[in-house]
Simulated scan of single mutants.
Amino acid sequence: MTDFDQYAEHRATQRKAVQDRIGVIDILSGEEIGHLANISLGGFMLITDRHLDLNALYQFRLTLTSPINGASNVDLGAESLWCQGTTVADTSWVGFHIIDISDENSAIIGELIDSWKG
């Protein structure tokens, strides 16, 4: 069983596959470090070519392709839980648990998820 499978079995809510390219920016460095693969109200999977420490805390800004309720970004705090390499050189999937998010930003994620069909 991979780390990805292990955490998928323990999620409170199923993640939804992302249907837009939503960039993920490290708020502290200001650099885009990857983009979302899937997301739920409790966590997300990031596709990145950067090394990210496991069991570490990050402050991220998700960049939306279209504003939701007037917002173009969602800021949140997240903890990295697992990492798995992909078949693409130097690319990894990293799983995160959302640990700090405002009610407004949580509602934006909910609306974003609801807007995707399937």
Rank of each mutant, 00 (worst) to 15 (best):
S80C: 11
H97P: 00
M1I: 07
N69A: 15
L54K: 13
Y7D: 07
R50L: 02
N55M: 14
L46G: 01
Q19W: 00
V94H: 01
I113Y: 05
L36Y: 15
Y7S: 10
A89G: 03
A78F: 03
W116N: 02
I27W: 08
A107C: 07
V74A: 00
F4N: 15
G34K: 00
P67G: 04
A8P: 01
E32T: 12
G42N: 14
I33H: 06
L57I: 04
G85T: 14
G95E: 05
T65P: 07
V18D: 01
D103F: 02
I109D: 00
S66N: 15
F60Q: 01
I39T: 07
L81K: 10
I101E: 08
S106V: 07
T2A: 05
N73M: 01
S40A: 08
L46F: 04
I113V: 14
M45L: 14
S102M: 09
T48K: 05
L52A: 10
N69E: 12
D103T: 03
V74R: 00
W116S: 02
T86I: 03
S80L: 09
T2W: 09
H10D: 12
S92P: 08
F4M: 15
I25P: 00
L52T: 04
G77S: 06
S92F: 10
S92K: 08
L41C: 00
D49C: 08
T87W: 04
S106H: 13
T87K: 11
S66G: 00
T86E: 11
N105K: 08
N38S: 15
D20A: 14
N73C: 03
H35D: 01
H51M: 06
D3V: 09
L76C: 04
R61A: 11
A37S: 11
S92W: 10
R21N: 12
F4Q: 10
S40T: 06
E104R: 05
D49V: 01
S115A: 15
R61T: 05
A78T: 08
M1E: 02
G95A: 03
Q14V: 08
E31R: 13
N73R: 07
N55Q: 14
A56W: 00
I109K: 05
T87D: 13
S29Q: 11
A12I: 13
I98V: 15
L54Y: 11
G43T: 03
T63A: 04
I27G: 01
L28Q: 07
E104T: 12
